[in-house]
Measured scan of single mutants.
Amino acid sequence: MAAAAAAGAGPEMVRGQVFDVGPRYTNLSYIGEGAYGMVCSAYDNVNKVRVAIKKISPFEHQTYCQRTLREIKILLRFRHENIIGINDIIRAPTIEQMKDVYIVQDLMETDLYKLLKTQHLSNDHICYFLYQILRGLKYIHSANVLHRDLKPSNLLLNTTCDLKICDFGLARVADPDHDHTGFLTEYVATRWYRAPEIMLNSKGYTKSIDIWSVGCILAEMLSNRPIFPGKHYLDQLNHILGILGSPSQEDLNCIINLKARNYLLSLPHKNKVPWNRLFPNADSKALDLLDKMLTFNPHKRIEVEQALAHPYLEQYYDPSDEPIAEAPFKFDMELDDLPKEKLKELIFEETARFQPGYRS
């Protein structure tokens, strides 16, 4: 834990890192770190609560700039109880001085990944967590956004079992017609939660990839272990087919990539493993919904509104309290091709509203 900075004593240090967030945020305490930044909790002297502050230093890398800009653009436009918001952003007053960006968010005690390492969940908890994931996802999908990296560590939890989806750095506007060349190379989302079509096709992607990830998360809540822990690309596919069985001819016809289709045709026939054999203690309604989410063919996979209306979630289902976005989200430009200098300018502009004396 960093010592509390005395008023006016300059930035606090946390594990050798400068955290320049005073005077409003003090009493910093280390939480963890990701690929390009550290997260601390801090005391907000204005709202009198502890908050989470993520320090991001992305400006050396085009990919990190892209992810940072995506996350900020999306989260500043989203407003939903099951999606983490941005409360404040701290950065230098000029673009030349801006080396880091500090993002202030609600402090959540833990995440689903940490929880599943230590606790076996009751059916009631599984049901409530799944409902909140789908409630947040309904809003995301209504904005025409794909999260693309749903996994237990991106689901934040607090002691009252509130759940918030975080990390929109890989999110995209849904565009089933656009052929994202190089899709697989830039697709760094965790393999275990990846839909089979991501490994088999490169053309376009749809909201059904997020539903697949939610199915993987439900299976993990039922058993405290990942359902498809593939060691590499082909191993991942083999794990999936080992449980779902061989795809039907109709399902194979959806695979545009001939090499991928021929690979699947070359494999020995596998039978589907019954879900109640894998999860003998699970609620039968939970397994019915799991089956509809972990469907090989993305066109037959359940959609988020149908999933919310499934009998497993009937005690929570309330369409009048499951809000959607006001308007579909649009990125003005494809960020993939922009140089990091341009992305830095866009991050600077996007964060201006939090600067003292800002006038829109």
Rank of each mutant, 00 (worst) to 15 (best):
residue 2 A to W: 00
residue 4 A to F: 00
residue 7 A to V: 07
residue 7 A to G: 03
residue 9 A to I: 04
residue 10 G to E: 13
residue 10 G to R: 13
residue 11 P to M: 10
residue 11 P to W: 10
residue 11 P to L: 12
residue 11 P to Q: 11
residue 12 E to D: 15
residue 14 V to P: 12
residue 14 V to D: 15
residue 15 R to L: 11
residue 15 R to N: 05
residue 16 G to F: 05
residue 16 G to E: 12
residue 17 Q to D: 03
residue 18 V to L: 08
residue 18 V to Y: 02
residue 20 D to G: 00
residue 22 G to H: 05
residue 24 R to P: 10
residue 24 R to V: 07
residue 26 T to D: 07
residue 26 T to Q: 08
residue 26 T to H: 07
residue 28 L to Y: 06
residue 28 L to T: 03
residue 28 L to I: 00
residue 31 I to D: 11
residue 32 G to D: 02
residue 33 E to G: 12
residue 33 E to Q: 08
residue 33 E to D: 14
residue 33 E to A: 00
residue 35 A to Q: 12
residue 37 G to N: 14
residue 40 C to K: 05
residue 42 A to N: 00
residue 43 Y to C: 13
residue 43 Y to L: 13
residue 43 Y to R: 09
residue 44 D to S: 05
residue 46 V to T: 04
residue 47 N to Y: 15
residue 48 K to Q: 13
residue 50 R to N: 12
residue 51 V to S: 02
residue 52 A to N: 00
residue 53 I to G: 11
residue 55 K to F: 01
residue 56 I to T: 13
residue 57 S to V: 11
residue 58 P to S: 15
residue 60 E to D: 15
residue 61 H to Y: 14
residue 61 H to S: 06
residue 62 Q to N: 13
residue 65 C to Q: 10
residue 66 Q to G: 04
residue 66 Q to A: 11
residue 67 R to Q: 12
residue 67 R to W: 12
residue 68 T to R: 14
residue 70 R to T: 00
residue 71 E to L: 11
residue 72 I to R: 02
residue 72 I to G: 00
residue 75 L to E: 01
residue 75 L to I: 07
residue 75 L to D: 03
residue 76 L to E: 06
residue 76 L to H: 02
residue 78 F to Q: 09
residue 79 R to Y: 01
residue 83 I to K: 05
residue 84 I to M: 05
residue 87 N to L: 01
residue 88 D to Y: 15
residue 88 D to Q: 13
residue 89 I to E: 03
residue 89 I to L: 06
residue 89 I to V: 12
residue 90 I to N: 14
residue 90 I to S: 01
residue 91 R to G: 02
residue 92 A to R: 06
residue 93 P to L: 12
residue 94 T to V: 01
residue 94 T to G: 05
residue 95 I to N: 14
residue 97 Q to D: 12
residue 99 K to N: 15
residue 100 D to V: 14
residue 100 D to L: 09
residue 101 V to G: 13
residue 102 Y to W: 03
residue 102 Y to I: 06
residue 103 I to D: 07
residue 103 I to K: 14
residue 103 I to L: 12
residue 103 I to Y: 15
residue 105 Q to F: 15
residue 105 Q to E: 15
residue 105 Q to L: 14
residue 107 L to H: 07
residue 107 L to N: 02
residue 107 L to S: 03
residue 110 T to Q: 06
residue 110 T to V: 10
residue 110 T to F: 00
residue 111 D to S: 02
residue 111 D to V: 14
residue 115 L to Q: 14
residue 115 L to T: 04
residue 115 L to C: 01
residue 115 L to R: 00
residue 116 L to G: 13
residue 116 L to V: 03
residue 118 T to R: 09
residue 119 Q to D: 02
residue 121 L to Y: 06
residue 122 S to E: 11
residue 123 N to Q: 09
residue 124 D to L: 07
residue 124 D to F: 09
residue 124 D to A: 14
residue 124 D to P: 08
residue 126 I to W: 08
residue 126 I to M: 11
residue 126 I to C: 05
residue 127 C to T: 08
residue 127 C to W: 00
residue 129 F to V: 01
residue 130 L to A: 06
residue 130 L to S: 07
residue 130 L to R: 05
residue 131 Y to A: 03
residue 132 Q to D: 09
residue 132 Q to A: 14
residue 133 I to A: 00
residue 134 L to S: 10
residue 134 L to R: 07
residue 134 L to D: 09
residue 135 R to T: 07
residue 135 R to M: 03
residue 135 R to P: 08
residue 137 L to P: 00
residue 139 Y to T: 10
residue 140 I to D: 09
residue 141 H to L: 15
residue 141 H to D: 00
residue 142 S to Q: 10
residue 142 S to E: 03
residue 143 A to P: 06
residue 143 A to W: 03
residue 145 V to D: 03
residue 145 V to Y: 02
residue 146 L to R: 10
residue 147 H to I: 09
residue 148 R to H: 02
residue 149 D to S: 02
residue 150 L to G: 02
residue 150 L to P: 12
residue 152 P to H: 14
residue 152 P to R: 07
residue 152 P to M: 05
residue 152 P to T: 13
residue 154 N to R: 02
residue 155 L to I: 10
residue 155 L to G: 01
residue 155 L to V: 06
residue 155 L to T: 03
residue 155 L to E: 03
residue 158 N to G: 06
residue 159 T to L: 04
residue 159 T to D: 04
residue 159 T to K: 09
residue 162 D to G: 00
residue 163 L to I: 04
residue 163 L to V: 07
residue 164 K to H: 07
residue 165 I to W: 06
residue 167 D to G: 00
residue 168 F to Y: 13
residue 168 F to A: 00
residue 168 F to E: 02
residue 170 L to Q: 14
residue 172 R to K: 10
residue 172 R to G: 11
residue 173 V to E: 15
residue 174 A to L: 05
residue 175 D to W: 03
residue 176 P to V: 08
residue 177 D to E: 14
residue 178 H to P: 12
residue 179 D to P: 06
residue 179 D to E: 13
residue 181 T to W: 10
residue 181 T to N: 12
residue 181 T to Y: 07
residue 182 G to S: 09
residue 183 F to R: 07
residue 184 L to R: 01
residue 185 T to M: 07
residue 185 T to R: 09
residue 185 T to A: 11
residue 186 E to A: 09
residue 189 A to V: 14
residue 190 T to L: 09
residue 191 R to T: 04
residue 191 R to H: 06
residue 191 R to F: 06
residue 193 Y to P: 06
residue 194 R to H: 08
residue 194 R to A: 08
residue 196 P to E: 09
residue 196 P to G: 00
residue 197 E to L: 08
residue 198 I to F: 15
residue 199 M to Y: 04
residue 200 L to E: 09
residue 201 N to L: 09
residue 201 N to G: 03
residue 201 N to A: 09
residue 202 S to T: 09
residue 202 S to Y: 11
residue 202 S to R: 13
residue 202 S to Q: 08
residue 207 K to D: 03
residue 209 I to Y: 12
residue 209 I to N: 14
residue 211 I to P: 06
residue 211 I to E: 10
residue 215 G to Q: 08
residue 216 C to V: 07
residue 218 L to R: 02
residue 218 L to N: 06
residue 219 A to H: 03
residue 220 E to P: 02
residue 220 E to H: 10
residue 221 M to E: 07
residue 222 L to Y: 10
residue 223 S to T: 14
residue 223 S to E: 10
residue 225 R to E: 04
residue 226 P to N: 07
residue 226 P to W: 02
residue 227 I to C: 06
residue 228 F to E: 02
residue 228 F to T: 00
residue 228 F to M: 02
residue 229 P to V: 02
residue 229 P to M: 06
residue 231 K to R: 02
residue 232 H to A: 08
residue 232 H to I: 01
residue 234 L to H: 11
residue 234 L to G: 08
residue 235 D to W: 01
residue 236 Q to K: 13
residue 237 L to Y: 10
residue 237 L to S: 04
residue 238 N to D: 00
residue 241 L to W: 11
residue 242 G to Y: 01
residue 242 G to S: 12
residue 242 G to H: 11
residue 242 G to L: 09
residue 243 I to Y: 02
residue 243 I to Q: 04
residue 244 L to P: 11
residue 245 G to R: 10
residue 246 S to N: 12
residue 246 S to K: 02
residue 246 S to H: 10
residue 246 S to V: 04
residue 248 S to A: 08
residue 249 Q to N: 05
residue 249 Q to F: 09
residue 250 E to S: 03
residue 250 E to K: 09
residue 252 L to R: 11
residue 255 I to G: 04
residue 259 K to E: 04
residue 259 K to C: 02
residue 259 K to I: 12
residue 260 A to N: 10
residue 260 A to S: 15
residue 262 N to S: 00
residue 262 N to G: 02
residue 263 Y to E: 03
residue 264 L to I: 08
residue 264 L to S: 03
residue 265 L to M: 12
residue 267 L to I: 08
residue 268 P to F: 05
residue 270 K to F: 05
residue 270 K to W: 05
residue 271 N to Q: 04
residue 272 K to F: 04
residue 274 P to A: 10
residue 274 P to V: 07
residue 275 W to M: 10
residue 275 W to N: 05
residue 277 R to H: 07
residue 278 L to N: 03
residue 279 F to M: 05
residue 280 P to Q: 12
residue 280 P to N: 07
residue 281 N to S: 00
residue 281 N to I: 15
residue 281 N to G: 01
residue 283 D to S: 05
residue 283 D to G: 06
residue 285 K to D: 04
residue 285 K to F: 08
residue 286 A to H: 03
residue 287 L to H: 13
residue 288 D to I: 09
residue 289 L to N: 05
residue 289 L to M: 14
residue 291 D to M: 01
residue 291 D to P: 06
residue 292 K to I: 08
residue 292 K to Y: 09
residue 293 M to F: 05
residue 295 T to G: 03
residue 295 T to Q: 06
residue 295 T to C: 09
residue 296 F to D: 06
residue 298 P to H: 14
residue 302 I to H: 06
residue 302 I to Q: 08
residue 303 E to M: 01
residue 304 V to C: 09
residue 304 V to Q: 07
residue 305 E to R: 06
residue 309 A to G: 07
residue 309 A to S: 15
residue 310 H to M: 03
residue 310 H to Y: 11
residue 311 P to K: 02
residue 312 Y to G: 06
residue 312 Y to P: 03
residue 314 E to P: 01
residue 314 E to N: 03
residue 315 Q to G: 04
residue 317 Y to D: 08
residue 317 Y to S: 10
residue 317 Y to W: 00
residue 318 D to P: 02
residue 319 P to W: 01
residue 320 S to A: 09
residue 321 D to P: 02
residue 321 D to G: 00
residue 322 E to H: 01
residue 323 P to E: 02
residue 323 P to T: 13
residue 324 I to R: 01
residue 326 E to K: 14
residue 327 A to S: 13
residue 328 P to Y: 01
residue 329 F to R: 04
residue 329 F to S: 02
residue 331 F to W: 00
residue 331 F to E: 01
residue 332 D to E: 13
residue 333 M to P: 12
residue 334 E to Q: 01
residue 334 E to N: 12
residue 334 E to R: 00
residue 335 L to D: 09
residue 335 L to R: 10
residue 335 L to V: 08
residue 336 D to F: 06
residue 336 D to Q: 01
residue 339 P to S: 13
residue 340 K to S: 04
residue 340 K to N: 14
residue 340 K to Q: 01
residue 342 K to N: 15
residue 343 L to D: 06
residue 346 L to W: 03
residue 346 L to Q: 14
residue 346 L to E: 09
residue 346 L to C: 06
residue 346 L to M: 13
residue 346 L to Y: 09
residue 347 I to N: 14
residue 351 T to E: 05
residue 352 A to V: 12
residue 353 R to V: 09
residue 355 Q to N: 02
residue 357 G to D: 15
residue 357 G to I: 04
residue 358 Y to N: 11
residue 359 R to S: 15
residue 360 S to N: 11
